[in-house]
C-alpha cells in the first residue's frame, strides 16, 4: 500500500477542491498530529532548543521524531483550520456542480 497516497488522498474519494475534499484533508492533518501527540513525541521537541531528547546528540532518530512532531503540529495548527474554513466557504457560496 502506498502510504503517501493514502495520506494525501481524500478519505471519501471526493475531489480536492470540494467541501468534502478540504474537510477530509483537515481531518487527515489532525489525525496525523494526534498520532504523533499520543505517541509521546511532544517530549522530543527539545531538539528545537539544541538538546537531544535522549542525551545523545548523535541520536538522529530521536531528532527526526522531534522534527516530525513539530511538522505535524504546524500543519494541524496552520493548515487544517484553513482547510476547514475553506470547506465551509465552499459549501456556503460555491455553485453546485
Amino acid at each position: 500500500m502506498n502510504i503517501w497516497k493514502t495520506l494525501t488522498s481524500s478519505l471519501s474519494g471526493a475531489p480536492v477542491c470540494s467541501p468534502r475534499g478540504f474537510f477530509d484533508r483537515a481531518v487527515m492533518l489532525l489525525i496525523l498530529f494526534a498520532l504523533c501527540h499520543f505517541a509521546g513525541l511532544r517530549e522530543y521537541t527539545c531538539v528545537i532548543s539544541g538538546t537531544s531528547p535522549t542525551g545523545d546528540p548523535a541520536d538522529i532518530a530521536a531528532n527526526i521524531l522531534g522534527l516530525a512532531y513539530f511538522a505535524t503540529y504546524a500543519l494541524a495548527l496552520l493548515l487544517a483550520p484553513v482547510f476547514l474554513i475553506a470547506s465551509i466557504l465552499l459549501r456556503l457560496f460555491a455553485r453546485p456542480s
Binding site: P15, V16, C17, S18, G21, F22, P81, V82, F83, L84, I85, A86, S87, L89, L90, F93, A94, R95, S97
Partner: peptide, 14 residues
C-alpha cells in the same frame, strides 16, 4: 470553476 473556487476558498480561509 471548481479549482478556482477551491483556491479562492483556501485563500479566504488563510
Amino acid at each position: 470553476y471548481s479549482r478556482l473556487a477551491g483556491l479562492v476558498a483556501l485563500l479566504a480561509g488563510a
